[in-house]
Design a protein around this nucleic acid. Sequence first.
DNA 1: ATCATACGATACGGTTGCGTTGCGAAACTC
DNA 2: GAGTTTCGCAACGCAACCGTATCGTATGAT
Lengths: 204, 204
Amino acid sequence: MTVMGTARPAGRPRSERAEKAIVDATLDLIGEGTSVSELSIESVAARAGVGKTTIYRRWANKEELVGDALATLKAPLPEIEGRTVREDLIAYLDVMRQDSLTVRTRCIMNIAMSEPERHPRLYERFQRTAIEPRRAAMRAVLERGVATGELRPDLDVEMAIGMLTGTMLWYTKGAAHGLLPGGVVPADLAPRIVDEALRGFRPS
Amino acid sequence: MTVMGTARPAGRPRSERAEKAIVDATLDLIGEGTSVSELSIESVAARAGVGKTTIYRRWANKEELVGDALATLKAPLPEIEGRTVREDLIAYLDVMRQDSLTVRTRCIMNIAMSEPERHPRLYERFQRTAIEPRRAAMRAVLERGVATGELRPDLDVEMAIGMLTGTMLWYTKGAAHGLLPGGVVPADLAPRIVDEALRGFRPS
DNA sequence: ATCATACGATACGGTTGCGTTGCGAAACTC
DNA sequence: GAGTTTCGCAACGCAACCGTATCGTATGAT
């Protein structure tokens, strides 16, 4: 008899190795610039060294596979709790900058962000698991700054988030495609953005 | 004999009506959310009420067709030359906000901006004809402000552009997909962004 | 009238990917 | 060992779309 209360179903158990290979292959292909619509189950199977059957046994369609794959990238969300608001904001923005340096992260971001109308549930899910936590963390830092008097009491926190994040995104997006003078995101971009923004965020 | 120096080639001339119908159909389909990779010549032909031959006679491939189609949307770039820097910036940002309200413009922007790695020439072309002129206009306003003393002499103009534009894009992108509290871009967003940003741009 | 070209329509062979099925081997329970 | 399920693999019929070719017709110049 089985020790576990929930009896393991008879037969050969599903291979965790195969499952991981499938998810990895999916992320790899997306990371190489394949859009969701271009991504084919066959290419995933080939890349993963797996039969199509093994994929269809676990996921009903492409969208669910991609959804699960992207969900495994739960933002590590570095535990930042520095001293000043400035330092914390710089730390968060610099995570974005570093992320933008890896092609894989950039492509995945691109996919997850750029096709919301075509894959609304996918977009929503990624937003919830990856974006919103980071936004909340930044919001907490800003609200703490307002509470301590480091920032203006009437600061529009949501807009402040938008200014910081939007500016960094503008740069990373532009630099990735040769719009910036140097063609690369400057290493000191995070502190520059934060310092420029804080100039208006501080009490007058 | 022909009056014109450049003799018109013999035979039936190409139909301008067909050409316009093809370009319109292309823009319509893209505006409805079809990505460039998903867009098929056959669907364009069907939508335009035109034979595939008529398309292939003018464009060698999909990319050139899309390129020409997008190029017909040469940004009108409103002639703004208000009085204060604040008013001019608000006017420019509000153009962005209004653009984001139409589904068609939003989809086209999405396509043109989101697939640079897959269609680099397309992206570069759209960037040159549509984005860069607007950026230059905003840069001129900011530099004028620096010259008149309305803005800080040491203002990083490029970053200022990034902050203004990036913040607006952040909002329009977020609002389009239900991330914002109200789900819509506030009508007074442009002045709010500009006022928040100018707080740091002005001389201290 | 004649000639040249473009027109829309239709069909073609070729490619890609879909989602399904059948196969023999492997893995695990009882 | 018997029974069950998953494995990778190959093949299937189906659909979409590619780019080309071939129709008969339409539209112009000479």
